[in-house]
Simulated assay, not measured.
Amino acid sequence: MYQRKRRRPVSDINVVPYIDVMLVLLIIFMVTAPLITAGVNVDLPKADANPLAEDSKPPVVVSVTENYEYFVTDGNKKEGPMVPQELAAVVGAYLKVEPDRPVMVEGDGSVTYDAVVNLMVLLQKQGVESVGLMTDPAEE
């Protein structure tokens, strides 16, 4: 009589598909990570200034580009381009949520002094008590 052979269950887990998925995810993250950086590209003036304290809250950054476009950057969230009055209203809304957050102005080196001062006046009318100016470290 013919006897049937019983197969034993295999207790090994095939991890090859998981390795393939992880490799694909790694490649996707390596390609997309440089594209996620938020911010506006401005050529800051150089000055020997003190940096913000490490324990301070992250600032709301108001940017003016060389083409006089206005942006607001809050962490990784960038809004703009917008008109200066709209920008001041957006910053005012941020400060209603967190009144003690610092506000920094990031003006391109080729922007006129008048544009930066008018922006600071608009921010002051929105209730911003103190505005910092961003610079690049001076070369020695």
Rank of each mutant, 00 (worst) to 15 (best):
M1L: 01
M1G: 03
M1D: 02
Q3G: 01
R4Y: 08
K5F: 08
R6E: 15
P9M: 09
S11H: 08
D12K: 06
I13V: 09
V16H: 00
V16E: 03
V16G: 01
V16F: 00
V16S: 01
M22F: 00
L23H: 01
L23N: 04
V24C: 09
V24Q: 07
L25M: 06
L25P: 02
L26V: 07
I27F: 12
M30Q: 14
L35I: 13
L35S: 06
I36W: 05
T37W: 02
A38F: 10
A38Y: 06
V40D: 04
N41I: 04
N41H: 11
D43K: 13
L44T: 10
A47Q: 12
A47L: 14
D48Q: 13
D48N: 14
L52G: 07
A53M: 00
D55G: 09
S56G: 08
S56Y: 07
P59M: 01
V60W: 10
V60L: 13
V62L: 07
E66D: 10
E66I: 00
E66A: 09
Y68H: 12
E69R: 08
E69M: 07
Y70W: 15
V72E: 03
T73H: 05
D74M: 10
G75L: 10
N76C: 03
K77D: 09
K77Y: 09
K78Y: 06
K78A: 12
E79V: 13
E79I: 14
G80D: 02
V83P: 09
P84F: 11
P84L: 11
Q85G: 00
E86Y: 07
A88I: 08
A88T: 05
V90Q: 15
V91P: 13
A93M: 10
P99S: 06
P99K: 11
M104H: 02
G109Y: 08
G109A: 14
S110P: 02
S110K: 13
V111C: 08
V116R: 08
V117S: 11
N118Y: 07
M120G: 11
V121K: 14
L122K: 15
L123E: 11
Q126M: 15
G127H: 10
S130A: 14
S130N: 15
V131S: 08
V131H: 01
G132H: 03
M134Y: 04
T135D: 06
P137R: 05
P137W: 00
A138S: 06
A138M: 04
E139L: 01
E140A: 14
